[in-house]
Amino acid sequence: MPSPAADDNQPSRKPTLNRRDLLQGRLWKLMRPSERTPLVMRYPKTRADVDGSDLAPSSKPSSKTPRSIGGIAIEPVPPTAFDTTAPPRSFPVFRPPGAVAEHQFLAGCTRCGDCVDVCPHDAIVKAPDRMGAIAGTPTIDADANACLMCEDFPCISACEPGVLSRLLPTTIGTARVTEHLCLAHHSTICTVCSERCPTAGVISVSDGKPTIDEGTCTGCGVCRYVCPAPENAILLMPLLNRPSLPS
């Protein structure tokens, strides 16, 4: 029974770049894996760093029943602290599913917190005060808790002002694999993102390496949440230019 990998036994072709790669600066595509900068795992430098951050490992492996999506458990362990510096003044944020265009959202959202309260997975949180204009509005941070894309979207049902709407797509963003950080691209085996992705067919694995179909990806962030690479290899981008609702 030949596997897909069996077809790779031809002499390797010279690497090539297409125009899109060039425009996007993907010159690292030309590098063979052996030439990539090696991965380095960095740990907090002091005990205080650990205690002060959410990275502190839980005191004991949790024994409670894990939450699951599609039958595959996603245990809520503390988030990965990648950056303790203050966020820039201006940046895109992830809104809950079904959010209207950002200007309408900011205008219409009453900061009531109902969507935060009903989220069964604690994925929706209020933006903190340091975020200025958006403070108090609902956001999702996949590093802390990914959106699990509930079938019945209680967050949308709970939204009285209607800035979350069933009439709009529930996609909240899209994900991309950053190949030079991805373990599967560093001559080792890792298939976690494809195993945990809650949407069938979004992450495919070919020759051991994952590819995300940006067309069907919902941006839920489960892949980022579970990625075990030394530096998270999943780049999440919020949905840009969300549609407006007729007012």
């Binding site: 010279k14 600066g25 010159l27 690292w28 201006s90 895109p92 840009l240």
Partner: peptide, 24 residues
């Protein structure tokens, strides 16, 4: 050919994705 180093220009074409939902 192997790539050892890539340097980019300062005034490269701005990325189209920089128009975002960002807030000020």
């Amino acid at each position: 050919i192997q790539v050892a180093f890539v340097g980019f220009d300062d005034d490269a074409t701005p990325d189209s994705s920089s128009t975002t939902d960002s807030v000020d």
